[in-house]
């Protein structure tokens, strides 16, 4: 295969596959606890890290990782302890992070908005040997956490209060998810870019759960979808002159649409295969539920 001949393309494909595996693996826990947009927030915060990296002439990737971890911990603490204005605090963090990134990168002597755009939208062609080593290490860490602690993370994301009563270290596990998400965002930054990271964390999971009934199958299927679309997107961008990040995300949304269309007949067939008492009654649905025309006399009323 011609595509595998250059070292550049080999690195790009390996990076893409690793991101395709880890992004949904973390994303499933975020979706489960209804924090699907947390990845997006971390991406915004990571921009300040990129800017800081340029300003201090340090590695933007490691700076972004550092700042994203700090930001994700802050977000988790706001979620856990924040009361009514938690959403406002998160908004401050999101947009502050983005504005900080733009400002810092313009202040730095070497950086410009052009540099920033390679982080915003991803640039597989600039993945170096050193980057790939870092991606391998970080991806291994993420897989270790998301697969090794899947039962515990499932319990915490499913019902936090119950998990606390089982004696699990809920706060530590929540912080672990936040840090793992931050690491994933900075790894995926090179492939799909900060602005599209969240899509790769959420869309494969959303697509998989259209046709699944269990958490385990959803996990495996979303990783398969994530890997397939990152591979397909990278290959497409090699043969056609299209940006890989955007191609990957659009492919993932395409898979989501296909599975959504498939879901309805599949659910109907499952319902039919089950016992008759669990039949669906579409006719009754259409007429609306049976509601009495007026309230009966309420005998509990007292003066």
């Amino acid at each position: 295969m011609e595509i595998l001949e250059t070292a550049l393309m080999q690195r790009a494909l390996i990076a893409a596959v690793l991101v395709g595996v880890i992004a949904p693996a973390v994303g499933i826990y975020l979706v489960q606890r209804r924090q699907a947009l947390m990845g997006d927030g971390i991406g915004h915060v990571a921009m300040t890290g990129v800017g800081l990296g340029f300003l201090l002439s340090a590695s933007p990737v490691w700076m972004a990782t550092l700042v994203a971890i700090v930001g994700s911990i802050a977000m988790e603490l706001i979620r856990a302890y924040g009361r009514t204005r938690g959403d406002i605090a998160l908004a401050m963090l999101f947009y502050g992070g983005m504005a900080g990134g733009v400002l810092l990168i313009n202040l730095s002597p070497t950086g410009s908005n052009a540099n920033l755009s390679s982080y915003l939208f991803g640039s597989l062609s600039t993945v170096s040997e050193g980057d790939l080593d870092a991606i391998w290490v970080l991806a291994a860490l993420v897989v270790l956490v998301t697969v090794g602690l899947r039962r515990q993370l499932f319990a915490v994301s499913q019902d936090e209060e119950f998990a606390r009563v089982t004696g699990l270290p809920v706060r530590a596990l929540n912080l672990l998810v936040a840090v793992t998400a931050a690491v994933t965002v900075t790894v995926a930054m090179r492939v799909v870019g900060l602005l599209l990271v969240s899509a790769l964390m959420v869309v494969p999971v959303a697509a998989a759960q259209q046709i699944t009934r269990s958490f385990a199958v959803t996990f495996v299927l979303s990783v398969v979808i994530g890997t397939a679309v990152t591979l397909a997107g990278t290959v497409t961008s090699y043969y056609q002159d299209v940006p890989p990040g955007a191609t990957i995300v659009l492919l993932a949304i395409g898979v989501f649409l296909v599975l959504t269309v498939l879901a309805t007949p599949l659910a109907r067939r499952r319902a039919r295969a089950l016992r008759p008492e669990r039949d669906e009654h579409p006719a009754a649905e259409a007429d609306g539920p049976a509601v009495p025309a007026m309230r009966g006399p309420a005998d509990e009323a007292r003066v």
């Binding site: 499933i28 979706v31 489960q32 606890r33 209804r34 699907a36 499932f154 994301s157 499913q158 019902d159 999971v205 759960q209 699944t212 009934r213 269990s214 958490f215 959803t218």
Partner: peptide, 8 residues
Amino acid sequence: AASGVPAT
């Protein structure tokens, strides 16, 4: 409110 991901 069910959780975001299906579970058996």
